[in-house]
């Protein structure tokens, strides 16, 4: 099986964006950044946990990992531009996308044949 998949690529980009945002909020002093810290750590832990699942090697992982990539990128951009007021809503979207990915990675009821 090909090692490279679009799902894995999306996931890695999401993790990278998330790490960048996480590093930046760690040193920011505003309240929104402080609130985002634990949420981003939780998201990062979840993304790393699913990264070695079989699901990520399948094409079925592409839509949910793409959603994570999109939301993580949005969070990273907001943090880089220090648009703190928009951050809580963006982090919430990222958290929701991550939870959807974790659920789908269990592949309950999935037919792969």
């Amino acid at each position: 099986m090909a090692e490279f998949t679009k799902g894995l690529e999306n996931l890695q980009e999401a993790i990278t964006a998330c790490q960048q945002a996480s590093t930046a909020v760690a040193t920011a002093s505003v309240a929104e950044a402080a609130q985002a810290r634990s949420a981003l750590e939780s998201v990062l832990a979840s993304l790393n946990e699913v990264s070695d699942k079989f699901f990520i090697k399948t094409m079925m992982s592409v839509p949910p990992t793409k959603a994570c990539r999109t939301e993580a990128t949005a969070v990273a951009v907001l943090v880089a531009e220090q648009k703190w007021s928009s951050l809580p809503a963006a982090v919430e979207k990222l958290d929701k996308a991550t939870k959807a990915l974790v659920t789908k990675a269990k592949m309950d009821g999935t037919t792969i044949t």
């Binding site: 099986m1 090909a2 490279f4 998949t5 679009k6 090697k57 399948t58 094409m59 079925m60 592409v62 839509p63 793409k66 792969i112 044949t113």
Partner: peptide, 20 residues
């Protein structure tokens, strides 16, 4: 999701096959 909206692409083996 796979950026396959342009004509000329091999769509099924990218989006339908369980694995690449």
């Amino acid at each position: 999701d796979f950026d396959l909206l342009d004509p000329g692409t091999r769509k099924f083996e990218t989006v339908s096959a369980t694995v690449h």
